[in-house]
Design a protein around this nucleic acid. Structure first.
Length: 271
DNA sequence: CACGGATCCTGATGGC
DNA sequence: TGCCATCAGGATCCGT
């Protein structure tokens, strides 16, 4: 479910509400991708200082450490006072003085991990190899060009890998490549400088637009207030195989790259 | 070091 | 209705 826009929309939807709260209790459901790393009691009494995002991770800053939260493929978060009893797929509850933060994740590819600080090896193992933030000032075309120049894999797979630039998942990789006019199968190191600059700009535009629209709700994504996103309605290629390109009318194609679906317009996007 | 494939898990969907 | 295969917004691990 969650790429950068969905994670950011989630963050925005509960960060103001939880800031300043004190943890009353924490409880776990079924095992997630990684263990919490400490006894849930360790969190009790800590104050929530704020919520940040790094790539697709939510970083919940506490007075004596931080929680790294990842939504995997099917995770979503709710924040409310008076939550019902945990359901079948609710695997983490953080009860605070200002409401309960709850992670629901049917497939359990997500995780909640406690680290004493961002420098903690536990945190570094998850964050250490992440690429640049696409919506930040550090994402400049020159560095992006140099990063791509060292990769000979298909550009779409390089984007998904997240070690050059973070946050671009399966939907937005296809969308950004469409906007940049680049065929997803093109080798990253064979893209000219101008095309890389176009791609850099397209990534920023697509992700920022998706955040504005509340993310994409394909099946069940919703923010911490239970609201759906709407970006999927304006997708140019994602999940539109067989339909006419909104730009040129050619038939949108679907292919597989590394077990993942890729969508593109064979006419608008050049190798 | 970088690449491609297998893998974790559950649920929805479509064909027969 | 049941059964089976396939697919799904992610990212790590492993062999090459």
């Amino acid at each position: 479910m969650p790429e950068l826009p969905e994670v950011e929309v989630t963050r925005l939807s509960f960060a103001p509400g939880i800031r300043g709260a004190t943890v009353l209790s924490a409880s776990l459901g079924k095992p997630l991708r990684w263990p919490l790393g400490v006894a849930p009691q360790r969190l009790v009494g800590q104050q929530v200082l704020g919520v940040r995002r790094r790539g697709k991770y939510l970083l919940i800053d506490l007075s004596e450490g931080l929680l790294l939260l990842h939504l995997g493929m099917s995770g979503s978060v709710t924040f409310a006072s008076g939550q019902a009893d945990p359901g079948k797929h609710d695997h983490f509850d953080l009860r605070t003085t200002q409401g309960t933060l709850r992670l629901n994740d049917p497939r359990r590819f997500g995780a909640v991990v406690f680290a004493t600080s961002e420098d903690d090896p536990v945190a570094q193992k998850l964050l250490g190899r992440l690429g640049v933030e696409p919506l930040g000032d550090d994402f400049d075309g020159a560095a992006f060009y140099l990063g791509l120049k060292q990769r000979k894999a298909a550009i779409k797979q390089v984007l998904l890998a997240g070690d050059v630039v973070v946050g671009v998942g399966n939907i937005y990789a296809s969308e950004a490549l469409f906007m940049a006019g680049i065929r997803p199968t093109t080798c990253a190191n064979r893209l000219s400088r101008p095309r890389v600059l176009r791609l850099q700009s397209a990534i920023r535009t697509v992700l920022a637009r998706a955040v504005e629209r509340g993310g994409s709700t394909l099946r069940d994504f919703s923010n911490a207030q239970g609201e759906s996103g709407h970006f999927q309605l304006e997708a140019m290629v994602y999940a539109r195989q067989g339909e006419p390109c909104r730009q040129c009318g050619a038939v949108i194609k679907a292919i597989k790259q590394g077990q993942r679906s890729t969508f593109f317009c064979p006419q608008c996007q050049k190798p």
